[in-house]
Computed example of a mutant assay.
Amino acid sequence: MKRRTTFFLILQFLLCYPAPAQEQDSTVDLGKSESFAGKLFGLADRTIELLSTDSWTFIPALTYSPETSLGIGGRALKIFRTGKDRAFESTRPSSLPLTFLYTLNHQVILTGELELWMDENRSFLNARMEFSDYPFEFSGIGNEVVEAEPYASRYFFFHLYYEKKIAKGLYLGPRYEFRVDDLYQKIPGGMLDSRNIPGSNGQRLSGLGLAVNFDRRDNIFQPTKGVYHQLSWMKFHSLFGSNYDFSQWIFDFRKYWSVGKEQVLVGQARFSFSEGEVPFQHLAMMGGSDLMRGYFEGRYRDRHAMVYQAEWRFPVYRNLRMVAFGSAGQVGRKSSDFGLNRNLRMAGGLGFRYRLNEEGLHLRIDFAYGDQPAFYFGLNEVI
């Protein structure tokens, strides 16, 4: 059954999702099979024309991850640039994705996000809003996980970031985050029902923070060289309307190397540290489609986390690419919990990428293994 499902998703991925104009120098010699492959990819090209207008791309959203199971919905995506004339060409592309998703785990997810580059990349604004009805699992806190217990939560999330360029590639700006959770279903007598865990009776978070970004990527959707480093700090406090008081620091370092013909190596080191009374929903986590693919999201969570990831990206045929990736990570309550011989967990896998437009936006399928085999189907690169 799993093999049939995997084949179905790959077939949908190839037939139902489109591509931009082709680059002849990225093709490989497939001999007689090239005719069939050309027809197959040509069908994808025609599909995008049917699903798109001059300014919007409409994508049937078919997703999969261990946390959600199969998800079905739709996504409308607009890629645009601000400014005019010379400034128009030099300003990075902005994006506006709108997504609705319903999963076989009975999760409902509605999101909208605006990433806006302005004034020839001298300022950047990001706004995201999300509403979810989200049955999920909780496996405790720390490295000694217990049998997962289900719970269900409705939550609303909003954040607003603004950054201003202060030097070449260097951006600084404030950020605001708000989140409210209603845990409407818990296991009677379970861990969350005891109310001894912060956030188990719901939460309301409101906080202000600051971020410093050093961004020298050559492309925001598909970088081939450069760096992206971010240092962010958030403070949630009753003064801002939050019912939990805590601070959180996140350090995210990424480096991109161009190697060989159209091949890219990527490395990431991400550290998250918290202080204060942190609700379990906001603890540092490993797992999911972004951090440590192959581990269930939130299976390991604690005050602090360190995650290292690497990818090798290379072309296969026309707009189809592949990715080989690996990762290692740890969570802990204090700094002494970290070390090579202290609960270091590893994962790895392979993935496929299919280019959607000239800006470099990709659809992706990842097959990973960590503490379980898993595959993910979604949009955009992980790092």
Score class of each variant (00 low, 15 high):
T5H: 11
L62V: 12
F280S: 05
D245I: 07
F88A: 02
V212A: 14
R92K: 10
I220V: 09
F236Y: 08
G349L: 06
W257K: 07
V323N: 06
L14M: 01
L116Q: 10
F236R: 08
S123Y: 00
K261D: 08
K186H: 03
K235C: 12
L283Y: 06
N380V: 10
P315A: 03
I48V: 13
F377V: 15
S232Y: 03
T224N: 12
V323T: 07
E89C: 01
M118C: 14
G351H: 03
G73H: 02
H282P: 00
K225Q: 15
Y376I: 01
R179S: 06
I166E: 05
S289T: 13
L50V: 11
I10V: 12
N357Q: 04
R293Q: 09
D290M: 13
F158L: 15
L172E: 04
G73M: 04
H237W: 12
P20L: 01
M1Y: 13
S200F: 05
L104I: 05
S194I: 03
V212T: 06
N343D: 08
L363E: 11
Q107W: 00
L30R: 09
S52E: 05
G169I: 02
L114R: 01
R318S: 15
Q248Y: 04
V108L: 14
I365K: 08
F8I: 08
M234Y: 05
G42P: 08
I220C: 04
I59S: 12
D182M: 03
T57S: 13
F377W: 15
E381D: 12
I48A: 13
R92D: 00
F296A: 09
M292G: 07
Q203D: 05
R270L: 15
A211N: 10
L96T: 05
F58N: 09
Q24C: 10
F246I: 00
G112L: 00
R353T: 04
D302C: 08
E381H: 10
R86G: 00
A167Y: 05
L77H: 04
A167F: 10
S55D: 13
A19V: 10
M286K: 07
A374R: 09
K164Q: 14
S238I: 08
G74K: 02
G83N: 04
R270G: 09
G287R: 01
S258P: 12
Y155A: 11
E137F: 14
I197W: 06
E147Q: 15
D371W: 07
T27G: 10
S200C: 06
R293A: 06
F367E: 08
N121Q: 02
D302P: 09
G202P: 09
D371C: 06
I59Y: 06
K186Y: 04
G202Y: 00
W249I: 14
A61F: 00
S123M: 08
N357C: 03
F367S: 11
N196M: 13
I59G: 11
E120S: 11
Q107M: 02
A211K: 13
R154N: 15
F271E: 12
L350P: 02
G360H: 04
S69F: 00
N121G: 04
K39C: 14
Y134P: 12
S327W: 12
E149P: 08
R75D: 10
Y317Q: 09
R179V: 02
P279A: 03
